[in-house]
């Protein structure tokens, strides 16, 4: 986070702040926009259009993203091609930003190429108890000293009940420990199912989040899932962000270019006691980011 206007004092405090992330607002923001599920990104990946990807990377970095998610799966069914695309994407993103990259894939070959290109300290997005992924992903995360997002999902699917999700989290934690990945490198995602089809979804996420926090583990969240299938999604996304921050978020996956959402995040952190002396809130205000 460079050029922050307000001085942050010594190098040391600046570094601490950087680790806290979010342009120093006490939470890590993982930018979600480089994802081949989006049509324009998919085309850019297929045509190796550097500019589209680099602009997305630079814009998200500038808007306060600490990590950038990278998903290049164009659905062609060609793992070699996808691995090559991942390597390409990581390399060209590296030309415009040094942000940590989250390699977003379900395939170990693609993951390995991404981690190799990104260098040490990248992020694995994600591993779960799904049997085809668990061992190879843990192995790669360990070998590349990566951070990892952990999903409490198993071969049986996505558990509805917070207790089952927490049981999966414990199993995943144990597996990570065994692979030599310490707790500080893990971010547990409580899972967010669309409210439109799972009425108890919001509550299940909040209870799971609280349970993960109780274990002393770090959390993350894919926010916008909550509003799928409902109108005026932004209202739900923002409100849910405030609620989940209230329970305890260490990082969040979202669109960092959504200025209002960022305002909501800054305010939520202050309200949740994660912004000592409202420093982050006031800084955001002075930068004209609020209201």
């Amino acid at each position: 986070m460079k050029a922050r206007g307000v001085s942050t004092g010594t190098d040391r405090t600046r570094r601490t702040e950087n680790q806290r992330g979010g342009g120093g607002i006490g939470i890590l923001i993982i930018g979600e926009l480089i994802n081949a599920t989006s049509r324009s990104v998919r085309e850019a990946v297929l045509n190796h259009n550097r500019q589209v990807i680099q602009v997305l990377a630079a814009n998200q970095a500038r808007a306060g993203a600490d990590y950038l998610d990278v998903n290049v799966a164009a659905g062609l069914g060609d793992v070699e091609r996808e691995a090559a695309d991942m390597e390409w994407a990581v390399q060209i993103i590296r030309e415009v930003t040094d942000k940590t990259l989250a390699i977003d894939t379900t395939d170990p070959t693609v993951l390995e190429r991404g981690l190799e290109a990104a260098g040490p300290g990248a992020m694995v997005n994600s591993f779960s108890l799904e049997s085809n992924r668990l061992e190879p992903f843990l192995g790669l995360a360990a070998r590349y000293e990566a951070l990892a997002i952990v999903l409490p999902v198993s071969d049986g699917g996505v558990p509805q009940e917070p207790e089952e999700r927490l049981a999966n989290c414990r199993e995943l934690f144990a597996a990570a420990q065994k692979a030599g990945i310490e707790a500080g490198r893990l971010y547990f995602d409580p899972l967010v199912l669309p409210l439109s089809v799972t009425p108890a979804s919001g509550r299940a996420t909040l209870l799971t989040l609280a349970g993960i926090r109780q274990q002393g583990w770090q959390t993350t969240l894919g926010l916008s899932n909550i509003s799928y299938g409902l109108p005026a999604r932004k209202v739900l996304n923002r409100t849910f962000l405030a609620m989940t921050v209230g329970v305890g978020l260490d990082s969040v996956i979202l669109n960092p270019l959504d200025r209002e959402l960022r305002g909501e995040l800054v305010a939520s952190l202050a309200l949740a006691g994660q912004d000592p002396m409202c420093a982050g809130y006031l800084r955001a205000y002075r930068r004209g980011e609020l209201g």
Partner: peptide
């Protein structure tokens, strides 16, 4: 749901 699992459709 995942773009990464679409190839399984072809398979």
């Amino acid at each position: 749901l995942l773009n990464t699992t679409m190839p399984a459709m072809a398979q």
